[in-house]
Design a protein around this nucleic acid. Structure first.
Lengths: 145, 145
DNA sequence: GTGATTGCAAATTATTTGCAATCTT
DNA sequence: AAGATTGCAAATAATTTGCAATCAC
């Protein structure tokens, strides 16, 4: 339970980047953080509407854009996804995309993090990061079959 | 230069999947293959229009969809891309996405292919594949700076 | 007070769909 | 001949933009 800590981080990071701390932004960030998953702008909009019915979908898009640009949130896409998804989890991690239902699961693995990137590639492209997408079947789909 | 071989493969794979071999599909496949890169439906449409001016963008979308469903082409997306990209290169490979210009480069590397996926994950998710996205700076952008 | 942000509506971009005419087999 | 595919136009979905009113600092 580190909700409060993350909200404080959100406020601080906004200030540090000259972004204003508005109730909408805090609500959006908090809701995304609480949901603990990957949400599309539309999904997130539907959730925050419960708390602030007059909030606009455009506001959600704009908030996610600025959050993403200052790395307060991470963005995920997948081949069959029609929209982008966001999460407040910005630690280095990987994704498993379910072949059957397209669900995205976060994967943490020190073993995967030790990726053996060839020196030649690192130099050639000035590699600064990487992420791995695994293809498999999520637990939900496994238990349904 | 294995253009012809690939076209034959296209014809055979279409037949094998009960897809009709139309001039549009061959043109689209051939152009994508010749371009030797990642093209969006729109980009590909602009290219094939040169040869068949009355071809429709919807036809390109439909052709890419069926090609993708029978694995005649691969699909690529990236976080900042507004559209999907396609390539006829369906061998297992990875992608480097340029931080600066968003260009996508194919990366072949036996060393990367030997990914050490934890046994526990493989079982848990019935992992059937993976791909790695590297973040770096493409050669063009390196030489421009 | 000043400039950033919001909410709304309209615009844009990417993709999909319905359907009659036309091809492939 | 039968069924799939094409081209077109319209529809849908995702995202962005312009702008006046409002809010944060």
């Amino acid at each position: 339970m580190h909700t409060k800590k993350q909200i404080v981080e959100c406020i601080e990071k906004c200030r540090a980047h000259g972004l204003k701390v508005t109730p909408q932004r805090l609500l959006i960030y908090n809701e995304l953080q609480t949901s603990n998953g990957h949400l599309s702008p539309e999904q997130l909009y539907n959730r925050v509407k419960e708390y602030q019915p007059n909030i606009s979908l455009a506001t959600v898009y704009k908030a996610l854009d600025v959050f993403y640009s200052v790395r307060l949130v991470a963005k995920v896409t997948c081949l069959e996804c029609t929209s982008a998804y966001y999460e407040t989890n910005i630690e280095h991690h990987h994704h498993l995309i379910c072949k059957l239902c397209q669900a995205i699961d976060d994967i943490y693995s020190d073993q995967l993090d030790i990726l053996n990137i060839p020196e030649s590639l690192i130099k050639e492209y000035q590699i600064s990061g990487f992420s791995i997408q695994l293809e498999g079947i999520c637990k939900k789909c496994q238990s349904t079959k």
